[in-house]
Design a protein around this nucleic acid. Structure first.
Length: 803
RNA sequence: GCGGAUAUGGCGGAAUUGGCAGACGCGUUAGAUUCAGGUUCUAAUGGGCGCAAGUUCGUGCAGGUUCAAGUCCUGUUAUCCGCACCA
């Protein structure tokens, strides 16, 4: 077989597509549209990873298929280029982050082009360009105007190594998301976005979108809605109320103590009343020094300090109860204080056991000597709730009572926290805020956007968590937009999540200087029809971007309430050793080398064929060769083509079946079985030894989304008109997909004993009679009693016999 | 600890949703082509027993439902991922 020269052929078609602007979408709004979105890459210095190729190949195939189906397709790409790795690399090498970013983007672009992705290259977006981040800042200011931005002095997660403040999301497990060193707690002024305001909308919106079920579930868990009640306990000897949040107000009669977070503000307010403030301080000190490891590993060992002379009263029975501080209660959730019901909460139970506090059972059914009982049961020791057996009833009754007595109210809490929205770094969007000694916090006027990131040589982080921008006097010093007096600019920048929270809107109209995107265009293109990306982004990025989008929707700036109609996620490509690819393990596969050795078509086919698209699968250097053979065999069709304008008898059925299978598999992320079916068809064609023009046309059209270069070349060699990517997707005839005659299995007592060829539409009796007439079957049932005989249409016959 | 997922040949993975387990590919073996290596082609390829026709065992493990179970039910083990004192 003639060898196929992939190097020149692939280059040739990439140049043609580029020159002809083949994959640019049109602004013809009468056409049906399809917006396919893939997560834009962070252009790191390491270049692309085969994982990127897999992530983009899925919707690449769908996009090419949609174009053949007559859709106006928007399949864009861009770069999420602000961020720490670039800045750190810049500091290390002395190059400016702008230069590093431009170099990396160039590298990524050439790599992406070599793979032949059908991106619309006229719509590339780069989050670090002024005309892009102008609108990131614009959205921030809109949020500011609408009360969604606030500043709060609070304990923050600070990474001493990166010298940055981190959100809870970025510092999970007490480790910095970027450098993995231990986080310390530090008090600082922080900018927040009030994402909790949108918690309910984000939850509700999930009902109307088509996300994979596990993606929805992860988002629900992340938002973490719980319903319960707020209850006010009076603090003895003061007018103060200690407010707590509980999901089980019905257990209020079982409260025997209360616990506050060590940082709870009431402690300082009433320090003079607390007899053992020294112990309290010592405990607080100990908590702040606890390492993340201790906190996570020693979960079971409760610690705490009882506050002397500081007690509360249980509002439902008037009993005086002690107050403790303990680090198992966190300031960040609920009100930072809890009512403890040791009989029915395991943490409270352990604490009570350790400190010798009373345990009062209020729900029957458990053993108070062993553990807390969290199940359902009859209410006891609970005054007016006694005798109720339904949890919902007792909660309702108690909630009504609290309301009536003015001591509490129903409430809702979310695990999701407000979004800490600043970083002390250079390579990010400047936050458009001015601090004026007279006017306070003043937003930069919209007319002054973009607030440019100053071009400087020294962008190393300041000491003590100050932003590098703080050292640049020409940036910091300004006049107040409101009163004109000397003022100082905010020097923190936005987190990396900012630019990626709305990029899909900019793709629609990337060069618009008047608006983030034209309203008419938004109306036509939104929502994104299909968004694919990594599983690791389905909580943070996906929630943040839905939040920004829903905010813009509430302002009337965008047309539909949810940005992404459908979301899927691809599985990782592991190294050949089955481990996650990483530079340190030396198991990284460079897509460039694969393209050099085998060609882009082979790489594309392999990343989709290697396994279930949604699951992780290890790379195999030898298995790639299978795809290389496949592509060569496709090319080999040029040597066995014959004339003919309709399918041959031998191939007719399999042609229709393959069209059907490939058509539906592509829609269901089953790229691996789609390619398997195409391989089977290829084998059939070679068995026959010839392929006529009609068959060839269908064959290469089906293959085109997967291996666009070789199929386009065959199209031309075979002398078809125009370009293959401008033809139409093949159709199939359902009637031609079914065979007239089928082979079925004949089972005796569930075991296959014979095969039988029958007419597809044969009835039960005919088939069973034919089965029984088979020599082997007749022998097996001879002298036996037939208990049961059945025919599953098109599948098998089973004859159940006994002696 | 909680939540989610997964478990099928030597390997990656299929299996019309309860109907012939192992599609497709890799690898391996034998043969052909070749000076040779590579490429390509043909055939075989889950394990056991058997020269063979066959036969038997087989989808992490133990039970169960069914004419029929990789698929459903009960229990159990292992691995991976996410969250982790959320009141």
């Amino acid at each position: 077989m003639a060898q196929y020269d992939f190097k020149s052929v692939e280059k040739k078609w990439q140049d043609i597509w580029d020159k002809e602007k083949t994959f640019e979408c049109t602004e013809d709004y009468s056409k049906k549209k399809f917006y396919a979105l893939v997560e834009f890459p962070y252009p790191s210095g390491a270049g692309m990873h085969v994982g990127h190729i897999k992530a983009y190949s899925g919707l690449e195939v769908v996009s090419r298929k949609r174009r053949l189906e007559g859709y106006n397709v928007l399949f864009p790409i861009g770069f999420d280029a602000f961020g720490l790795p670039t800045e750190n690399y810049a500091i290390k090498t002395g190059l400016h982050p702008r230069v590093v970013t431009d170099n990396n983007i160039e590298k990524f672009t050439s790599q992406l082009r070599r793979v032949g992705f059908s991106f619309d290259w006229s719509k590339v977006v780069d989050t670090t360009q002024e005309d892009y981040y102008k609108w990131t800042q614009w959205i921030f200011l809109k949020m500011f105007d609408n009360g969604l931005v606030f500043r709060d002095k609070t304990l923050i997660n600070y990474c001493p190594s990166c010298k940055v403040v981190l959100s809870n999301e970025d510092s999970q497990g007490g480790k910095c998301d970027i450098c993995h060193s231990d986080i310390v707690q530090k008090s600082k002024d922080v900018w927040y976005l009030r994402i909790t305001e949108y918690a309910d909308k984000l939850l509700e919106g999930l009902k109307e979108v088509d996300y994979l079920p596990n993606i929805k579930l992860q988002q629900e868990n992340w938002i973490g809605k719980s319903t319960g009640a707020f209850v006010n306990f009076s603090v003895n000897g003061t007018d103060e109320k200690l407010k707590i949040y509980t999901t089980r107000p019905d257990t209020l009669f079982g409260v025997t103590f209360m616990v506050m977070a060590p940082e709870h503000p009431l402690i300082d307010k009433y320090a003079s009343m607390i007899g053992n403030m020294a112990d309290v301080e010592a405990y607080r000190d100990m908590c702040s020094k606890k390492s993340a490891f201790e906190r996570t590993q020693l979960v079971k060992d409760k610690t705490g300090v009882k506050l002397d002379g500081f007690t509360a009263t249980n509002p439902v029975n008037g009993k005086e109860i002690p107050i403790y501080i303990s680090d198992y209660v966190m300031m960040g959730y609920g009100t930072g204080a809890i009512m403890a019901v040791p009989a029915h909460d395991q943490r409270d139970f352990e604490f009570a056991k350790k400190f010798g506090i009373d345990i009062i059972e209020v729900i029957k059914g458990g053993d108070m000597d062993v553990e807390a009982y969290t199940g359902d049961g009859e209410m006891v020791n609970s005054g007016f709730l006694n005798g109720l057996t339904n949890k919902k009833d007792s909660i309702e009754k108690m909630a009504a009572y609290l309301q009536e007595q003015g001591i509490g109210e129903k409430g809702v809490q979310y695990k999701m926290n407000d979004w800490a929205f600043n970083r002390q770094r250079y390579w990010g969007e400047p936050i458009p805020i001015v601090h004026c000694p007279d006017c306070g916090i003043v937003p930069v006027p919209y007319s002054e956007l973009p607030l440019r990131l100053p071009k400087v040589d020294n962008f190393e982080p300041g000491t003590d968590g100050e932003s590098p921008l703080a050292k640049i006097d020409s940036f910091v010093n300004c006049s107040c937009p409101k009163c004109g007096k000397a003022a100082k600019r905010e020097t923190d920048t936005m987190p990396q999540w900012a630019g990626s929270s709305w990029y899909f809107l900019r793709y629609i109209d990337p060069h618009n200087a008047e608006r983030f995107a034209d309203s008419e265009k938004l109306k036509y293109w939104m929502p994104v029809d299909w968004y694919n990306g990594g599983m690791e982004h389905v909580t943070r990025h996906l929630i943040y971007s839905r939040f920004w989008y829903k905010f813009l929707y509430d302002l009337g700036e965008v047309p539909v309430s949810e940005p992404y109609a459908k979301r899927t996620a691809q599985g990782l490509i592991l190294g050949p050793d089955g481990e996650k690819m990483s530079k340190s393990k030396g198991n990284v596969i460079d897509p460039n080398e694969v393209v050099d050795q085998f060609g882009a078509d082979v790489l594309r086919a392999y990343v989709l064929f290697m396994g279930d698209y949604e699951k992780a699968a290890p790379w195999s250097d030898t298995a790639v060769k299978g795809c290389k053979r496949f592509v060569d065999r496709i090319w080999g069709m040029t040597e066995i083509m014959t004339e003919g304008d309709s399918y041959s008898k031998e191939l007719e059925s399999i042609m229709h079946k393959t069209v059907k299978k490939v058509t539906s598999d592509i829609e269901n992320l089953k790229y691996n079985t789609a390619i398997a079916a195409l391989m089977t068809l290829t084998n059939e064609i070679y068995n026959k030894g010839a392929i006529n023009k009609a068959e060839l046309k269908t064959y290469i059209t089906l293959l085109n989304p997967f291996v666009p270069h070789v199929t386009e070349e065959i199209w031309q060699v075979a002398g078809f008109e125009g370009m293959l990517n401008q033809t139409s997707w093949p159709t199939y005839d359902e009637a031609k997909c079914v065979d007239n005659e089928i082979e079925i299995a004949v089972q005796i007592n569930g075991k296959v004993r014979e095969k039988l060829v029958v007419a597809a539409d044969a009835d039960n009796d005919t088939v069973i009679a034919a089965a029984k007439a088979l020599e082997k079957v007749a022998a097996a049932i001879d002298g036996m009693t037939i208990v049961k005989e059945l025919y599953v249409k098109g599948r098998l016959v089973n004859i159940v016999v006994k002696p």
